[in-house]
Amino acid sequence: MKTDEKNFLNREPAEPTAGLNSAAIPIWLTGLLAVLLYWSCTFTDTRGGRFSPLVYAPYTSTNQLAEFLPKSGDDDFLRQGKMVFNKNCAPCHQDSGSGNPSTFVPPVAGSEIVAAAGPNRLIRIVLDGLAGPIKVNGVDYGNAAMPPWRPAMNDTEIAAVLTYIRGSWGNKAAAVSPEQVAVIREKDKTHSDPWQWSELEKLPEKD
């Protein structure tokens, strides 16, 4: 009787366990998955555009896109300057740089202040703004009021936009470097009010 009971218990199958075991995953499936993985990697590699945010199907790389584009003569710094100008300055000074006498905005195109020999006064105007009477090319612009851009623009942006306005619309003055802006930004750290033209006039145009 006892031996029968024992045999009966022995016939009970073992409790199943989870886990990887070679019998559960056939070798062909492993092979197929490996092939699929390889194919998907190659597929992504050739069509993914290296995950650049500038590449969309059907294009496959930024180089390819660059080849398709018409070549432009502008260099990157000037383009950045134009971008900054159109975004921040053009609402008052106009896209064409002509200014707007009815709202006391002097022109930047053809202005002797913009096309000055050195950019020192210009950098100060952009950094801390300008208030009060100003004469450009002999025309009085009365209550000109330009806001300060010190917190809103970094040195490169200011240099780019000044380079742009000094070299566009017939202006032919030298480029401005971010270092020149950085020097003046540091020097005028404590300057809080917008500049008056009478103050600026006493400062040298050039270092």
């Binding site: 995950f51 945010p53 584009l69 018409p70 432009s72 502008d74 383009r79 971008m83 159109n86 975004k87």
Partner: peptide
């Protein structure tokens, strides 16, 4: 990838 997207100049370079 795209979180930092900003307005930019068109390739002709005329408008933002």
């Amino acid at each position: 990838q795209l979180g930092g997207l900003q307005p930019k100049l068109t390739t002709g370079g005329d408008a933002v």
